[in-house]
């Protein structure tokens, strides 16, 4: 069911055009283009954990956005088979003024669940996040740890086939991180797929079977995660 093919794309992320810049560019067509991803191709198999490493600004987040299909590439295409849950940022769709309860529904609905489906997992979500009574308080009163736990818990209950993770395990306390990794392992056992962007290199080696090193928008290396991380670390020294 999940056989993912990501083919080539070459998106340019340009500057926000204000009215003035648009008028200016009418005169001179030459606008500076930033190449965020340059002809990147790879393939992630079903049931695999795939890591992406690289310096800041290498295009990792852009790549995840293209894979989540929220950003249309200028060239190339992405093929995704299965229900992808994106965890590019935590707490997407949350409204801090509203209660945790309402936010569980908002976050779930935003990610494509139906209300009835959320009803079924609601208790588990609260239990997993360990929030208890606080679920009926406005989210703005939560500590950042509580917020992350709730947001992560919602994402883990979306029952996705594919998870795109962007550095999100860096938040929360050690115990919660352990719980998160456990949940992701369970997902892998159910032959789900995880694409994992992280600067925590040991975690990438430990968790992912294969990895890709992205450098200034280009693929430097794809291979077994230990080799890729070693080569990347070598370049940092």
């Amino acid at each position: 069911m999940v056989d993912r093919v990501s083919v080539r794309y070459r998106p340019y992320v340009d500057r926000k055009p204000t009215l003035r810049r648009s008028l200016a560019s009418l005169r001179s067509r030459a606008t500076t283009e930033v190449v965020a991803l340059d002809d990147v191709s790879f393939r992630v198999e079903k049931g695999e954990a795939f890591g992406i490493v690289g310096r800041n600004g290498a295009g990792k987040s852009t790549l995840l956005r293209v894979m989540a299909r929220t950003l249309r590439p200028n060239e190339g295409r992405v093929v995704v088979n299965g229900r992808a849950s994106t965890l590019l940022q935590l707490g997407v769709g949350f409204n801090p003024e509203l209660s945790g309860r309402r936010n569980v529904y908002l976050g779930g609905l935003a990610s494509g669940l139906r209300r009835a489906e959320i009803d079924q997992v609601f208790d588990d979500v609260v239990e997993f996040a360990g929030l208890g009574e606080a679920i009926d308080r406005p989210v703005k009163t939560y500590s950042s740890g509580m917020f992350s736990r709730l947001a992560f818990s919602v994402s883990m209950h979306l029952d996705p086939d594919i998870i795109l993770l962007d550095e999100v395990l860096a938040v929360g306390d050690a115990e919660f991180r352990k719980k998160g990794i456990q949940t992701m392992r369970q997902l892998l056992e159910r032959s789900g797929t995880i694409v994992f962007v992280s600067h925590a290199l040991p975690q990438v080696v430990d968790f992912c079977s294969r990895a890709m090193w992205l450098d200034a928008g280009r693929v430097r290396l794809i291979g077994p995660s230990a080799d890729v991380v070693e080569a990347y670390q070598g370049s940092l020294r």
Partner: peptide, 20 residues
């Protein structure tokens, strides 16, 4: 298919905007 989301977002904003 996403009508529940539209409704939750609209009513949620209405509630949030006036919460204070």
């Amino acid at each position: 298919r996403r009508r529940e989301f539209a409704l939750a977002l609209g009513t949620g904003n209405l509630k949030a905007r006036n919460a204070n």
